[in-house]
Every structure is written in C-alpha cells, then in structure tokens.
C-alpha cells in the first residue's frame, strides 16, 4: 500500500518545488538600490504616505517605495541613524529635534460632533472634559436638549484619540465612554443614528460627511468654527501637522518624492484619508 504512495509523494514534492521557484521568481524584486525609498515612522502619516507612494510608483516604473509603521519616535530615530530615507512624524518637531527638517504634507484636526437634531450649538473645553470624565451625564446640564449623553470614544492606539487626549490633558483610563469605535467612518455612522451621542472625528471627515448629507453637526471650539479653512490657516485649536522629516538637505529621489508629496497632485489622496491638504 505504501509502495504506491511514495512515488506520488515524490512527484508532488517536485511539483511543489517548481511552483515555489516560479512564485519566488515572480515576487523577487527587480529593483536597483538607488530606486528604492524607505519611509518609517508615525502610523498616522503612514496610510497617507503609502497612498502617495503607490501613485508615485505608478508614475515612475522601476521605483519602489516601502512604508513601515512604528510611531513618530521611530521616524525620528531612524532618520537620525540613517536607517530610513525619510522619517514620518505626526506632530511639529520639538526643540531638541532642531537637527531635522520637517516637510508638512497635510494637517489633521479633531472636532466634536453631535447628531443634527441635537439643539446644542457649542460646548466649552471644561464641559467636554466634565462629560468625558463622567461628571456630567445629561444634555440638560450643558444647554438646551435632554436625555443621557451617549459618549463616544476611539479605540486604543487611534491617532484621533491621542490628539483628543493630548489637547484636553486627559489620559485614556480617565475616560468614561459608552461606545468605543474604530475609525472616523464608524464614529460618523454611530452619531448620525444616535440623537443623544457626542463624539469626535477628524475634521476633514466631519466636513465631508456633513457636506454629503450625513445628519451630523460639528461644534465650534473656543469660538472657532470647524472648517477646512480654520485648519489650513492653523486657527483651529485641536490641530497637528503630518510631516516627512529629513536629517540632510534633500537630493535626488528623496527630493523628488517630497516635492511630489507636497504637490497638488496628491490632494485627492489627502482628502480621501480625511486629512486637510496644505495650501
């Protein structure tokens, strides 16, 4: 019985081997070293950088751009040690990072949103902190409207959560939320079907959603209306830059890529990811 099975096994081993070699030949990168770019750093910048890289590759056949996540800190470390060609950092550079140069490719702002039927027109920063830490539970305590506030928060690790916590000087464990969602789309969807919900999303996401008829309302913060202009002119209070950083003056392929990433040709990609293009 086994005598018959063995040749069959041997045959398929040969087959598997040839299939493997064929696949390896397909996957093997036929790219020269000087046509390869490596970007590492912030997971907020990475999705945008990856989209830009994809389009850049299609415009420059033979060039390969790799984007790896690892946080803004890794972006800074890698570019200092020459481990990456370009670093990605989702904030302005700090004072002790003066050896680096930042090239802003987009802005990201965070705005509070409520359902369109909610009569509330504005919330102060103190009220927002009190609501998110569970000290205020009713809409009647902060203005017109009634019912229990349904507090929406983002999942751990999301960049909008970090920006929100950072601005309001809160830490994750202090927040008493009723609903946790993943991305902006889910947050918008939930608030659009929940009359008593309060949430926060990327400002671009809120503006594009409201424009396309989703029943939500973005609230002004510190008297600044949540608009794309307020972000682009850096007037909106909860705001950050999405940067590509370099340790040396840009040249060659790196310079070309950065110019492309800052050009108007990628604004549609910036908007798709709910960020705000630079002007």
């Amino acid at each position: 019985m086994m005598g018959r099975a063995v040749p069959a096994q041997r045959r398929c081993r040969g087959l598997a081997l040839s299939v493997g070699v064929f696949l390896a030949a397909l996957i093997a990168p036929a790219v020269r070293a000087d046509d390869k770019l490596l970007l590492t750093g912030s997971s907020t910048v990475a999705p945008l950088a990856a989209e830009i890289a994809k389009r850049y590759e299609s415009l420059h056949p033979g060039v390969r751009v790799d984007v790896q996540m690892g946080g803004s800190a890794r972006g800074v470390t890698d570019i200092r040690h020459g481990l990456a060609d370009i670093g990605m950092v989702s904030r302005a550079l700090k004072a002790d990072e003066a050896d680096l140069t930042a090239y802003t490719i987009a802005f990201d702002g965070v705005t509070m949103i409520v359902n369109k039927v909610n009569p509330i027109t504005t919330l102060t920063e103190e009220q927002i902190v009190a609501i998110y830490t569970g000290k205020i539970r009713e809409w009647s305590a902060v203005g017109p409207g009634k019912g229990q506030i349904v507090i929406e928060n983002k999942a751990e690790g999301r960049s909008t959560l970090e920006l929100f916590l950072d601005h309001f000087k809160l830490s994750s464990p202090e927040i008493k939320a009723d609903v946790v969602v993943g991305d902006n789309e889910e947050a918008l969807k939930f608030v659009s079907v929940s009359p008593n919900a309060l949430g926060y999303v990327s400002i671009g996401g809120a503006v594009y959603a409201a424009d396309s008829g989703v029943p939500i309302k973005a609230l002004p913060l510190d008297g600044v209306e949540p608009t794309i202009e307020a972000v682009a002119t850096r007037k909106f209070p909860i705001l950050r830059e999405l940067n590509l950083v370099l340790a040396r003056p840009p040249e060659g392929r790196v310079k070309d890529f950065i110019n492309y990433a800052q050009s108007g040709e990628v604004y549609d990609l910036v908007k798709e990811l709910f960020y705000v293009p630079i002007r």
Partner: peptide, 12 residues
C-alpha cells in the same frame, strides 16, 4: 482585535 490592530505596536 479588529478595533485595535491597525495602530497597535509593541506589547499592545
């Protein structure tokens, strides 16, 4: 897993 994996790093 679905909520947190896209941006999780290290021990997370």
């Amino acid at each position: 897993i679905a909520l947190e994996i896209p941006y999780a790093e290290g021990l997370h």
